[in-house]
């Protein structure tokens, strides 16, 4: 464990908690893409099945349980508890265009053709594009609540910190995972446009307006 990975995990945890609290406190999921949240729940489910097969550390297990629990709680709040506030008209990204190619790629490009490894690879590829429905929805509505932009900022920051973690681990431990690195780069690049707006416009405005 190094400071970049720890900060990255805490940033990821912060994003997940911020979103869950936002929906719970405001009793509304307006502006939130339920599709992205379903994809994240799928990412955690397919990646953390090893909870049942191997124990890494208390930290590892605890974080995985928290991530999975929060992901499903968020999906529940969006599609069940506060369904009336779900903005389905703007959450129209065709997620099958993400899941199917990612599923196929996981079968073609992986480190090992075993079920757990394929599922892990699927989760890595899916995570890199899972935010697209959310970014697409914001571009359609043309704005995002401030709290949502903080959620996206920490979510994007976490994988950027993981990239530094992988540089650190390559240099000090000789650790190298091409699949995780390439997907992580793609994932972080998708946030660049948002990062620019967050930094340049975040301060001044109450709402982040993305030019549609």
């Amino acid at each position: 464990m190094n400071i970049f990975r720890l900060t990255g995990d805490l940033s990821h945890l912060a994003a997940i908690i911020i979103l869950l609290l936002k929906i719970w406190k405001t009793r509304s999921c307006a502006g939130i893409s339920g599709k992205s949240q379903i994809l994240f729940a799928l990412v955690f489910t397919s990646r953390y099945l090893d909870l049942l097969t191997s124990f890494i550390s208390l930290y590892n297990t605890t974080m995985k349980v928290i991530y999975i629990g929060c992901a499903y709680a968020t999906v529940y709040l969006i599609y069940a508890k506060f369904k009336a506030t779900y903005d389905g008209n703007h959450d129209t990204f065709r997620v099958e265009f993400l899941v199917v190619p990612v599923g196929g790629l996981a079968f073609l490009v992986n480190h090992d053709f075993s079920p757990l490894e394929i599922l892990w690879t699927f989760s890595i590829y899916l995570e890199s594009v899972a935010i697209l429905p959310q970014l697409f929805m914001i571009s359609k509505t043309g704005e995002a609540e401030t709290i949502t932009t903080h959620y996206l900022f920490f979510l994007g920051l976490y994988r950027a910190l993981y990239l530094i973690n992988w540089i650190w681990r390559f240099y000090f431990e000789g650790f190298f995972d091409m699949i995780a690195i390439v997907a992580g780069v793609v994932q972080t690049i998708l946030y660049c446009d948002f990062f620019y707006l967050y930094v340049t416009k975040g301060e001044g405005r109450s709402q982040l307006s993305i030019p549609t």
Binding site: R5, D9, H12, D50, S54, I56, S57, N60, M63, K64, Y67, H111, W120, Y162, N165, E173, G174, F175, F176, D177, M178, I179, A180
Partner: peptide, 10 residues
């Protein structure tokens, strides 16, 4: 091109 390792990352 991948170091065999336990998946210890989240």
């Amino acid at each position: 091109h991948r170091t065999p390792q336990v998946k210890d990352e989240l």
